[in-house]
C-alpha cells in the first residue's frame, strides 16, 4: 500500500505559469477533438444567447397566423409553429433561457456542493454526521417531486426555476464531492500537510479541492446538461418556464408533442438544440477533465 501511494505523495500542486495554461488551452482543440467540438457548440450557444435580438429575424412572440405550421423555408429557417411564430427566433431566444437555467443552477450547485462535500469529508465526526444527516433528509425526496413542490411553493418563473434546480442538483453533488474527498483525504500527502501544520482551510481548499476538481468538473458538466433536461421534463409536467418566454423544453414538450404528427419541425429543432447543448456540455467536460486532471498531466 505504501509504495503504491508514494507516487501520489510526490504530487505537486498545479504550476501557476499562465503561459503554460494558455498554451495548453490552445492545444486542447487538437488534443481532445470531442472536447473541442463540445467547446465550439457551447461557444455558439453562448453567442446565440447573448446576441439573440440581433440574430433572431422576428420577435419571439410575433404571430403570423396566416403562415402557421409552415415547414422550414428561407423566410422561416426552422418553420413556424401553430400560431405562425418563427421557430428559429424562438430557438435563439430559448438559448437565453437555457443559458440562464443551466449556468445559474450549476453555479449554485457547484458552490454548495464543494463547500458541503469537502467540509464534511475533511472534518468528519460530528460535522460530517450533521451535514450528512441534512443531506440525507434532502436527498430522501424524489428529485422531480421535490422540484415540483418547490416550484409550487415559490411560484413559477425563470429565476425561481433556476434556484430550485440549483438546490436540487447541489445536494446529491455534495455526496460525490465528499466521497471523492474522502479518497483524497486517505492519501499520504494530506497527512503530511497536516503534520507540517497547514491550516484546515488551506488543506481543504489548496490540497483537497484541486484533487476533487476533476470530479467536480465531470459532474458539473453532466449537470449543465441535466439542468436543461430537467427544465424540459418540468415543462412536460406543466411546471417549466411559463409562457410567453420561449424555452426549448417548453417548445419540445408542449406544442412540439401536440403537433408531432402534423408539424414535426416544431419539436425537432428545439429537441435538436437540447441534444446539442447537452452533448456539447458533456463533451467539453470530458475533454477538460482529461486535460486538467493533474494526475493525467504529462502522460501524453
Amino acid at each position: 500500500m505504501l509504495e503504491e501511494q508514494a507516487g501520489t505523495f510526490s504530487y505537486v500542486p498545479p504550476a501557476s505559469s499562465r503561459f503554460r495554461v494558455l498554451k495548453r488551452s490552445s492545444q486542447f482543440l487538437v488534443d481532445k477533438p470531442l472536447g473541442g467540438i463540445g467547446a465550439i457548440i457551447i461557444a455558439v450557444l453562448l453567442l446565440m444567447a447573448i446576441f439573440a435580438p440581433l440574430i433572431a429575424p422576428f420577435p419571439y412572440a410575433e404571430n403570423h397566423i396566416s403562415d402557421r405550421l409552415q415547414g422550414p423555408s428561407l423566410r422561416y429557417f426552422f418553420g413556424t409553429d401553430a400560431s405562425g411564430r418563427d421557430i428559429f427566433s424562438r430557438v435563439v431566444y430559448g438559448a437565453r433561457v437555457s443559458v440562464v437555467v443551466g449556468f445559474g443552477a450549476v453555479s449554485i450547485s457547484v458552490f454548495i456542493a464543494s463547500v458541503l462535500g469537502i467540509v464534511s469529508a475533511y472534518y468528519g465526526g460530528l460535522v460530517d454526521t450533521l451535514i450528512q444527516r441534512l443531506v440525507d433528509i434532502w436527498l430522501s425526496f424524489p428529485s422531480l417531486v421535490i422540484l415540483i413542490s418547490i416550484m409550487a411553493v415559490i411560484g413559477m418563473g425563470l429565476s425561481n426555476l433556476t434556484l430550485a434546480i440549483g438546490l436540487l442538483l447541489s445536494v446529491g453533488f455534495s455526496r460525490v464531492v465528499r466521497a471523492s474527498a474522502l479518497t483524497v483525504k486517505g492519501n499520504l500527502f494530506i497527512e503530511a500537510a497536516t503534520t507540517i501544520g497547514a491550516s484546515d482551510m488551506r488543506i481543504m481548499f489548496r490540497h483537497i479541492l484541486p484533487n476533487v476538481v476533476p470530479t467536480i468538473i465531470v459532474i458539473a458538466t453532466v449537470q449543465l446538461g441535466a439542468a436543461i433536461l430537467i427544465e424540459s421534463s418540468l415543462s412536460f409536467l406543466g411546471y417549466g418556464v411559463p409562457p410567453p418566454r420561449p424555452s426549448w423544453g417548453g417548445m419540445l414538450s408542449g406544442s412540439g408533442l401536440v403537433y408531432f404528427t402534423k408539424a414535426p419541425w416544431m419539436a425537432v429543432f428545439p429537441g435538436a438544440f437540447i441534444t446539442l447543448a447537452v452533448f456539447g456540455f458533456n463533451m467539453l467536460g470530458d475533454g477538460l477533465r482529461d486535460a486538467l486532471d493533474p494526475r493525467l498531466r504529462g502522460s501524453r
Partner: peptide, 29 residues
Amino acid sequence: DYAARTLSVGMLAIPGFWLATLVITLPSI
C-alpha cells in the same frame, strides 16, 4: 472510445418523455 462516449452522451441528451413518446407514437404510425 469516441463512439462509446458519443453514445453515452446521446443517451443523456434525450429527454425521457420524448423518447417514450417516440417509442409509442412512431410504431403506431
